[in-house]
Design a protein around this nucleic acid. Sequence first.
DNA 1: GCTTGACCTCAAGTTGACTTGAAGTGGCAG
DNA 2: CTGCCACTTCAAGTCAACTTGAGGTCAAGC
Lengths: 149, 149
Amino acid sequence: MKVLDIGEVAAQSGISPSALRYYEEAGLISSISRHGLRRQFPPEVMLQLKLISMGKMAGFSLAEISGMFGRNGMPDLPRDVLHQKADEIDRQIHELTALRDTLRHVADCRAPSHMECPAFRRLVDVAGRHGKRRGNAEKSKARGNLSRS
Amino acid sequence: MKVLDIGEVAAQSGISPSALRYYEEAGLISSISRHGLRRQFPPEVMLQLKLISMGKMAGFSLAEISGMFGRNGMPDLPRDVLHQKADEIDRQIHELTALRDTLRHVADCRAPSHMECPAFRRLVDVAGRHGKRRGNAEKSKARGNLSRS
DNA sequence: GCTTGACCTCAAGTTGACTTGAAGTGGCAG
DNA sequence: CTGCCACTTCAAGTCAACTTGAGGTCAAGC
């Protein structure tokens, strides 16, 4: 079993064929040949897809992800850029931890109002200032590819 | 200083007035009155916005967020649902941690190919199976509100 | 009393990440 | 040889979360 039919990839990864085609068009993965019309993928694609899904979970756009993991699939950026990305994720982990703890706190704390509970206010104060990942208006010049016309 | 003009809220929170109006229409926040045409918000809105931004960072949609933090602004769900949400976030933290470590690893590891490095493969294997947060095709019946027409 | 500037409304546009639909193709089971 | 069915292409649609634009309002300062 050397190559994987797009159907197998879809089944094993849980990603729909149309999404896989979209990823290919976007340059995130690449099929190695065709069987009739059907795209055939190399086994490595499964790992690439795992990396992609991790990146998506981290809130990175497909453009950013394709930036981190070069066209070949393996991360190939200068060390400092990678560490920078890692730092970014680290900050996100902190926010998420604060949110999780906040949720757990309000689930268990029986104070009359959470506003009066110092633990609550402390948790909420952990997050802040370094906001905006997903909804910012920074002109993402990562556009330009994938402009079907 | 009891109420905040939408301009003050925008300035202090970094969220644009149009986004604040959008949040209000979506029922995430509510203005308490008007000064002329200008919306006036109660001070609590700042905390609500902080919670909203935490939720967004966690990858929740506005609909999900408005589900967690009732119309009044404070989380008001049954304990077990809150813990469930917290568990979900916990899983996400694990994925993010794996991604961060993967990035740091490839930044520092000087193996000829990462595929041959056991540390790399171990890191990648941490994530998996419980995928799909943001891009799933589950028919989100969280629709229905905000359907202007 | 007039201007100004920050807000207002409402409709329409944008972006990313896909999905859907129509029309077609081709390997394989029977 | 004939269907079938999962794939193919390409264009267009969808959805969330906003932003933008046109045209309007109003409290405050000069």
